[in-house]
Computed example of a mutant assay.
Amino acid sequence: MTTDGVAKSATRNTTTSTGHNDTLRQVIVVVSAVLAIIGGFVGSGAAGGQAVQVASGGALAADATPIAPGGPAFSIWSVIYLGLVAYAIWQALPGQRTVERHRRLGYWVAASLLLNAAWILSVQFDLLPLSVPVIALLLVVLVRAFFITLATRPENLVDTVVTDGTVGLYLGWVCVATAANIAAVLADAGFRGFGLGLDTWGVVIIAIAGAVGVALALRGRGRIAPTLSLSWGLSWVAVARLSGDLESTPTAVAAIVAVIAVVVATIVLRLRERRSPELSARR
């Protein structure tokens, strides 16, 4: 075989291998989305099991800890699941098969879907301590996915909404859920907060969550989606602390202040980001 023949053969093999890997990635994302939907169905209690809020002895109920969101907060999962299904379909289209953005993002999204299903199962089977490393790993995976959306440009409005919007909403909510999950496990284990009151711990954790929200706004240059879901979760923490069985005015006020801080930071950064190209053009 000539040198040109070897080169052409190598090129064909590379193309075939890449195409096969792209198709495999697309299939894995779709299958992971299906498994996540099934897990969400089980977690809702519709399949005969317990809803997440009442599973594991009610450790994740709205009145279990000072930073537990009110029950309606979990309705955001319907939007997130819808976005994840939309992304699974979008990235599976023939025209998206070789898009570099999906090559870099697809497996991370698939991992998040499987971890989400694993988290639901850990709670459903009363393995509450196991839920903490699972949701922590989920958070890490989503942060990585978020960074990839920042580093790669969406090709159109559909990609912006389906990809960036879904990953952002998912990440913002999981930030709140992670804090609530850790607090629930500590409370269930009998942790008493080193003598500090529930109000103090509530304010401290909410302040951390608010700082994370501002950090996401900074890193995302004013991305709206993470702010929407994180603010949604913190708002329902405030509602639960003002009207639920476990009232805590200091925690509620801290949650409201955190929401305002995150929203204002996002708006300011987004306006600055929009002005930057204009200023550059004038110069």
Rank of each mutant, 00 (worst) to 15 (best):
N116K: 03
A46I: 02
Q96K: 06
S78F: 15
G49K: 03
V85M: 13
L82C: 11
G71S: 12
Y81N: 06
L93S: 13
H102F: 14
V134W: 06
I120K: 02
A110P: 08
W119I: 03
T65D: 09
A88Y: 05
S78V: 14
V141W: 01
L138N: 01
A64E: 05
V79N: 03
A73W: 08
V54W: 00
A62W: 13
S112E: 02
W108S: 08
V123A: 02
P69C: 12
G58K: 07
A110K: 12
L113R: 02
S75F: 11
A46M: 07
L105Y: 00
G70L: 15
V99E: 09
P72T: 13
G83V: 07
A118T: 09
G71K: 10
L128K: 08
P133Y: 08
L114G: 01
E100Y: 04
P69I: 11
T65N: 12
Y107V: 11
D126T: 13
V79A: 14
S75K: 04
W119N: 00
N116F: 05
W90M: 10
A88E: 06
Q96G: 02
S131M: 04
P133T: 10
G95E: 13
A64Q: 10
W119H: 00
H102Q: 11
A68Q: 08
W108Y: 10
I67H: 05
A117Y: 05
V143L: 06
G106P: 00
V109W: 02
S131D: 05
A64Y: 04
V79M: 06
Q50S: 06
S131W: 00
P94E: 13
I76D: 01
L142W: 00
V54Q: 04
A110Y: 13
F125T: 15
V140R: 07
W108H: 09
V54F: 01
A68G: 01
I120Y: 02
S122Y: 04
A47H: 06
G49E: 08
G58F: 03
E100G: 14
S78M: 15
Y87N: 14
L114N: 04
Q96L: 05
V141M: 09
A111I: 04
Y87F: 13
P72N: 14
P129N: 15
V134L: 15
R144N: 00
I67K: 09
G71V: 10
L128T: 07
V132Y: 03
P66S: 14
G58A: 06
A73Q: 10
W108V: 10
L127I: 10
V99K: 06
R101N: 07
N116D: 08
R97Q: 12
A62K: 11
